[in-house]
Simulated scan of single mutants.
Amino acid sequence: MNNILTGAAMGAALTTAGVYKPSVILSQFNFSDFTMLQTFLTAAAGSTFFVTAFQSLSLTSLPPRPCAPLSSSAKSFLSRHAGNILGGVMLGTGMAISGACPGTVLAQLGAGVPSGRYAFGGAVLAGWAWNVLFSKRMPKASKDKADGDGEGKKKQAETIYEMLNTPYIRAVAAMEVLLATCIALAVKYAPAEAGYTRNVVPPLIGGACMALSQFISLALRRTTLGASTSFEELGSNLWAIVKGQWDQIKSWKNVLFMGGMVAGAKAVTAFIPAAAVSLVEGTAVSPLRGLLGGFLIVFGSRMAGGCTSGHGISGLSLLSVSSFLTVAMTFAAGGVVGLSMG
């Protein structure tokens, strides 16, 4: 039940904020509107506050997001984060093509966005492909990798505060100041006026709603938000059912979270008609783009070890190096593809 409730909170938050709409996501990546950026920055700031509070009070003991190497022999910084780089590029490309990410595609499904159905199909296919064909071949990130060999191995920094050799709380405070500065600059120089007229609430309030869903996840599940794992679990379970290997189904908890997100989005659009997309917005993405983009967003997210919520909201809140790198590559690739597509 906690997974369903948490999913419903996240789905409702995405829908209320309006960032689930393909037009809002596409306009961010062609830099014509900055609703998504303002919402994302506010959500990250609020999430960081809640995650830090739970960690400091010992209510949770969440590790940082690990790096995602593509080779078992990876030792250098870039090779250890190759999956974050390549996966982030795929995620950003898929978002700019489909106008969706692993979380928003579920909100689109609940809100009845036509392109969201195709993106969902591509996402489920990617979840199956990753789990069945690739995940078992991927190396696991070692927590004691060294810069050298033999004795005296140096642990690779997984967090920003480890990398900068600074106290955790001081790094969190600096993170919050940085995010607040970015929000202020975005409000002044990257307005979201066009986006606000399409949404229920202003971007900053929408971001606060998303941060609140992080609080609900921490309070009910003692873990952070993330959507892409749901597709891997769904693809794996469906494949097990097709093969008749029911004993291979280990869990449905992430699928329940997925169902909660769909239900949350559906409830908001049912009670607040202004939150729903228009016919023009709903058909802005073709079925082929939806299918291809849906595949890329989930396959890339699994390669990177997280998506825009897992890395972008939760991972940044934990000051994970891998999350900063993945998010940077996602927005960079999405911007390049978005501008090239006009």
Rank of each mutant, 00 (worst) to 15 (best):
Asn2Gly: 14
Asn3Lys: 00
Ala13Trp: 04
Leu14Cys: 05
Gly18Pro: 04
Val19Lys: 06
Lys21Thr: 01
Ile25Arg: 04
Gln28His: 11
Phe31Leu: 13
Leu37Trp: 13
Leu37Met: 11
Gln38Phe: 01
Gln38Arg: 15
Ala43Thr: 00
Ala43Met: 01
Ala45Thr: 02
Gly46Arg: 05
Thr48Ser: 15
Leu57Pro: 02
Lys75Leu: 10
Ser76Asn: 12
Ser79Pro: 08
Arg80Val: 02
Met95Lys: 02
Ala96Ser: 00
Ala100Glu: 02
Cys101Ala: 06
Gly103Ser: 10
Gln108Cys: 05
Gly110Arg: 08
Tyr118Trp: 15
Gly121Ser: 03
Ala123Pro: 02
Ala126Val: 02
Trp130Arg: 00
Val132Gly: 03
Leu133Met: 06
Pro139Ser: 05
Ser142Asp: 13
Lys143Trp: 04
Asp144Arg: 09
Gly148Tyr: 11
Asp149Asn: 12
Asp149Gln: 06
Gly152Ile: 11
Lys155Phe: 10
Glu158Gln: 14
Ile160Arg: 04
Glu162Leu: 08
Pro167Leu: 13
Arg170Pro: 00
Arg170Phe: 14
Leu179Ile: 12
Ala180Trp: 02
Ala180Arg: 01
Leu185Glu: 03
Tyr189Gly: 00
Ala190Cys: 13
Thr197His: 00
Arg198Glu: 07
Ala208Asp: 06
Gln214Leu: 02
Gln214Gly: 06
Gly226Ser: 13
Phe231Cys: 02
Trp246Gln: 09
Ala263Cys: 09
Val285Gln: 11
Gly294Phe: 06
Ile297Trp: 00
Val298Ala: 08
Ser301Thr: 06
Met303His: 05
Cys307Pro: 08
Thr308Lys: 00
Ser314Phe: 10
Leu316Gln: 05
Met329Phe: 15
Ala332Thr: 12
Ala333Ser: 15
Gly335Ile: 09
Leu339Asn: 05
Met341Leu: 15
